[in-house]
């Protein structure tokens, strides 16, 4: 399903955070890069109609402004950045079931299996560790099996197993034909999820939007992001881990 913006503008207290963004994402995996404060979270929140914006956001050709909250939640799975700020229930199981009850859908429990180990179910979500919380928080939205996923920094807090779980989740979503938009503030994880396209937000607009294979270090550096060469130099090169001269 296609999600697109037309002249999207968002401002907070008179300060323009996003200006005039027109972009479209079809099914596949897309990453949105940008330095801290560039407006990545704001962009995703606008797509899900969670902030006031000018212009329009169309999902499958229809404006989100004309849809009810329920309808949007059936189409768009928005997973926020800080997992702790969104827990609403007393146990993990209730947390995950909440959206299925609210929307009256049975959900895709394979998604929950990919993210949340069984033994979390009886726990209080607010007592989970960072990585555990991130997994539960994403499962609590994506279980509803929406065609569009908005994942805000899905790798934060995660250890190796957690990263692997999210990579598998994104793979699973891709195979199901979902449109997946992932925000990242560095490209380290992007290589793992093999995105189809990348976009860079800088100065309130989309500076680059192209196929992943054509991303250049120069573009990254210009947008205040760590270029690939630097990551490789420090990790693999002579100045790499533990080989300090």
């Amino acid at each position: 399903m296609i999600i697109e913006t037309r002249n999207l503008r968002v401002s907070f207290n008179g300060v323009e955070i996003l200006r005039d963004i027109s972009i479209a994402f079809d099914s596949g995996v897309h990453i949105v890069l940008g330095r801290n404060g560039a407006g990545k979270t704001t962009f995703l929140r606008a797509l899900a109609n969670l902030v006031r914006f000018d212009g329009d956001v169309l999902v499958g050709g229809r404006s989100v402004k004309k849809m009810g909250r329920r309808e949007i939640a059936m189409l768009i799975g928005y997973c926020w950045q800080n997992p702790y700020y969104g827990f609403v229930e007393a146990t993990v199981e209730d947390e995950i079931r909440a959206i299925t009850r609210i929307l009256g859908v049975s959900g895709d429990w394979r998604i929950v299996e990919l993210l949340v180990p069984r033994e979390y179910m009886g726990r209080d979500p607010s007592t989970l560790s960072g990585g555990e919380a991130k997994r539960v928080s994403m499962a609590s939205i994506l279980v509803a099996d929406q065609p569009i996923w908005l994942l805000d920094e899905p790798f934060t807090y995660l250890d190796r197993d957690g990263v692997e779980a999210v990579v598998n989740l994104i793979d699973y979503g891709r195979r199901k034909g979902k449109t997946i938009i992932v925000t990242l503030h560095e490209i380290f994880y992007a290589n793992l999820i093999k995105p189809d396209t990348y976009a860079i937000i800088d100065g309130g607009t989309i500076k680059f939007f192209d196929r992943w294979s054509s991303l250049s270090d120069e573009e990254l550096a210009k947008a205040g992001l760590v270029p690939r060469g630097v990551i490789c130099d420090t990790l693999c090169g002579p100045r790499g881990l533990g080989v300090q001269s």
Binding site: A48, L50, R69, I72, G77, Y78, F87
Partner: peptide, 16 residues
């Protein structure tokens, strides 16, 4: 401060 993020989380689940 929490209220606004929790409102987001409820809206994302389809509750206005």
């Amino acid at each position: 401060a929490r209220t606004s993020t929790l409102v987001d989380s409820l809206k994302a689940r389809g509750i206005e």
